[in-house]
Design a protein around this nucleic acid. Structure first.
Lengths: 149, 149
DNA sequence: AGAAACATCACCCATATGGGTGATTTTACA
DNA sequence: TGTAAAATCACCCATATGGGTGATGTTTCT
């Protein structure tokens, strides 16, 4: 994965850089402006993605009939059994998502999700995700919001 | 994910390139740099939101479908949406058993369990066993025994 | 500074799961 | 009595999941 990201990033960067250099030569425009513009565009797109994602998470939480949310925030002190990240992953699991979907949601690799889940299973003493979800609910780590409307 | 990264990278590159080309056209006529940057940023944020929303919609599609059917399940709870056998299988699923274990428990074949579960998923409008278990709990089909986890 | 926990990711492998099709037998009931 | 629903099972195929090992960078706390 590191190789993939690095490769695609380098390829993209090389394309853009060469295009920018070509343009500079043709148009005789200062290079700094291009780079600055590039940075602004990339950062802005990132902000946009973040905004869109946050918005959709809010919408989803508001209009779903039955979702599972993490409630460890209210009991962090004595309930340090699961880390925040593990709890977040477990919440997605309880909502029926696949590892692939969770990975895409959290912008990490599927292997990372599997790693977190292995840790969760170990800590909860279970061997499968469904059992982990139910144990988490019964133990108070997760809570089912059932809004029947 | 590799495809996603590559795709997003190429898309980003294309966008930036087109933006850069656009700037060439605009810069032919003296224009205020700040305003142009602002426009670029706004457009890029919009693109980012669109990208994030599109992707997130794809990822969230299944969960949305599941919540809808959770409402239906609640409304028809007394009409026995699930058969006794399906409910029995689902209970074992919620206890974290594999299909093989459930089959051995109920003295039927694993294929039968899979068949029942396919019916359960269809009726509850879900695609995975964990989601089915959580929906069943939130809809009142199942109850969680308080484990001392 | 160094240890411990945490988060991240890769690679391999075996099994579990879900989806689809189709079939037979039993049971309920109109 | 005929039909519809339910329960049972087989087979194929693609993907998901769990288990194990090991590695790297970052926090955090001592």
């Amino acid at each position: 994965m590191n190789r993939t990201i690095l490769t695609s990033g380098l390829v993209t960067g090389a394309i853009i850089t060469s295009l920018a250099l070509l343009q500079v030569r043709v148009m005789a425009v200062p290079l700094v402006q291009e780079i600055f513009l590039l940075i602004v565009a990339v950062v802005a797109i990132g902000i946009g993605i973040w905004l869109g994602r946050t918005y959709y998470e809010r919408v989803e939480a508001r209009q779903t009939a039955a979702t599972v949310s993490a409630i460890q925030a209210t009991r962090t002190a004595e309930m340090s059994l699961l880390t925040e990240r593990e709890l977040e992953v477990l919440r997605h699991v309880a909502n029926g998502k696949t590892n692939r979907e969770i990975a895409d949601c959290l912008f990490v690799s599927e292997n990372t999700i599997k790693s977190h889940l292995a840790s969760v299973y170990s800590k909860l003493g279970v061997r499968r995700r469904t059992e982990a979800a139910m144990v988490a609910v019964s133990a108070g780590f997760l809570e089912i919001d059932a809004k029947t409307a």
